[in-house]
């Protein structure tokens, strides 16, 4: 199959992820959308690595997986803490900081 189809798929996934971050209000869902964006990048890296015939892109994909795992740890810690003190995981509700 033509690798450029995978690039188009990755662009679609990235777009869905970015839309999800902007539209959804639950912090966990927003966070999942960010992960979707990271994985869309991974797909693009791997597809480009196949097109160029070198391994750089695949190596990057491994590093991104590790970074994404670290991000999950940090992100969930923050979201859980917010949830415990406010009984809600909505991104809109914490609004003490403004103007």
């Amino acid at each position: 199959m033509n690798p450029s189809n995978y690039i188009i798929l990755s662009a679609l996934l990235f777009g869905i992820g970015a839309t999800g971050v902007l539209v959804r209000r639950n912090a966990i869902v927003v966070f999942m959308s960010v992960e979707l964006m990271l994985n869309a990048s991974n797909l693009a890296f791997v597809a480009f690595a196949r097109m160029h015939g070198n391994l750089d892109g695949q190596v990057v994909a491994f590093f991104v997986m590790v970074v994404a795992a670290a991000e999950v740890v940090v992100g969930l810690a923050i979201i859980v803490q917010i949830f415990r003190s406010r009984r809600s995981a909505s991104i809109d509700e914490p609004n003490l900081l403004k103007y």
Binding site: G75, I78, I82, S85, I91, P94
Partner: peptide, 15 residues
């Protein structure tokens, strides 16, 4: 609460 809110905003937008 302000501090936790700052962390959440920083994290989501940063990621």
């Amino acid at each position: 609460l302000l501090s936790q809110e700052a962390a959440l905003k920083y994290f989501v937008l940063g990621a």
